[in-house]
Write a protein that binds this DNA or RNA. Structure first.
Length: 278
DNA sequence: GTCTATGTTTGCGG
DNA sequence: TCCGCAAACATAGA
């Protein structure tokens, strides 16, 4: 669930939490598979004593720079959340990794489905080198996007979900961007005409920026859905035009929004605004 | 009991 | 090589 705007919101809140300069005094790992690399013993040893130096984001990865030069990368996958709590707060069921700091606070990785992963590495490139563009970066130009799109025959939706093509988009923002750009999710990438490509480029950036402004999309009751630090909810769900709105009227034309499966993912679109042909 | 889920990776077959 | 598909991860909620 956490996509670029949600991860960006978490990173912003980490920055606001005055954790920089704090030293990690203890590392508890309650579910070993959450630690992707290195081996849990080494992970615990290497992380203990480290001081937090910076928080950034790349794609859907939270990147925590440590004073030693090492990096702690966190991927929340579908249901990961971070909590900052006093050390004496009892540990709850889904808290799988707990970092304790020298100010008696803790950073806790919480994840009911246990799909998320933590990586402790010397070079972040080891993990993120295969990621595609940052869509809000200057390097993501219309010209470059256009040139690369034409090289793929794939359906546009699975291509936009491919993190090695463009990093940070997930099911929600892809559906919203395709709606914004009037494009059917099954169109093949190399069939898009220049005006359509320009519309898609603009739409991707627009829906992501709005998602960030709204501090992310928090669907449902928040339990297994996105929330930023300490369960803070976003409000971008109020701005969604098609995602999970099947059966309701398209906000632009009133046609009933449909849901289909594309590449094993539920896909929401307006059959009138987003026509398949041409 | 059934079905679904917003992410990513891997392996298979065409 | 490209591409679509299915499964795996593991659990909660409807």
């Amino acid at each position: 669930m956490p996509e670029l705007p949600e991860v960006q919101t978490v990173v912003a809140e980490l920055q606001e939490a005055r954790l920089l300069g704090r030293r990690i005094t203890d590392v508890k790992i309650r579910w070993q598979k959450i630690v992707a690399t290195p081996q849990v013993d080494k992970f615990r040893r290497d992380l203990t004593g480290q001081t937090l130096a910076d928080f950034t984001r790349r794609g859907k990865f939270i990147m925590i720079k440590l004073q030693s030069g090492k990096w702690l990368l966190i991927h929340l996958r579908m249901t990961g959340q971070l909590l900052i709590l006093p050390a004496n707060r009892p540990v709850t069921k889904h808290e799988h990794v707990i970092l304790r700091f020298d100010d008696r606070r803790t950073l806790r990785y919480h994840d009911p489905r246990k799909f998320g992963r933590l990586y402790l590495v010397d070079e972040p490139e080891q993990i993120i080198s295969n990621l595609g563009w940052e869509p809000l970066d200057r390097a993501f130009t219309l010209k470059a996007f256009s040139a690369k799109l034409s090289r793929f025959k794939r359906q546009i939706k699975p291509l936009l979900l491919d993190q090695t093509f463009i990093a940070g988009l997930g099911n929600i923002y892809v559906d919203e961007a395709l709606f914004e750009a009037y494009l059917h999710p099954l169109r093949s990438a190399n069939s898009l005409k220049p005006p359509e490509i320009a519309a898609l480029h603009r739409a991707i950036r627009r829906v992501l920026r709005k998602g960030i402004q709204n501090r992310g999309t928090s669907l449902g009751n928040g339990k297994a859905n996105f929330a930023s630090i300490n369960r803070r909810r976003g409000r971008n769900q109020e701005s969604l035009k098609v995602f999970q709105r099947q059966g309701q009227a398209c906000p632009r034309c009133g046609t009933v929004i449909r849901r289909i499966a594309v590449g094993q993912r539920s896909t929401h679109f307006c059959p009138h605004c987003q026509r398949q042909n041409r």
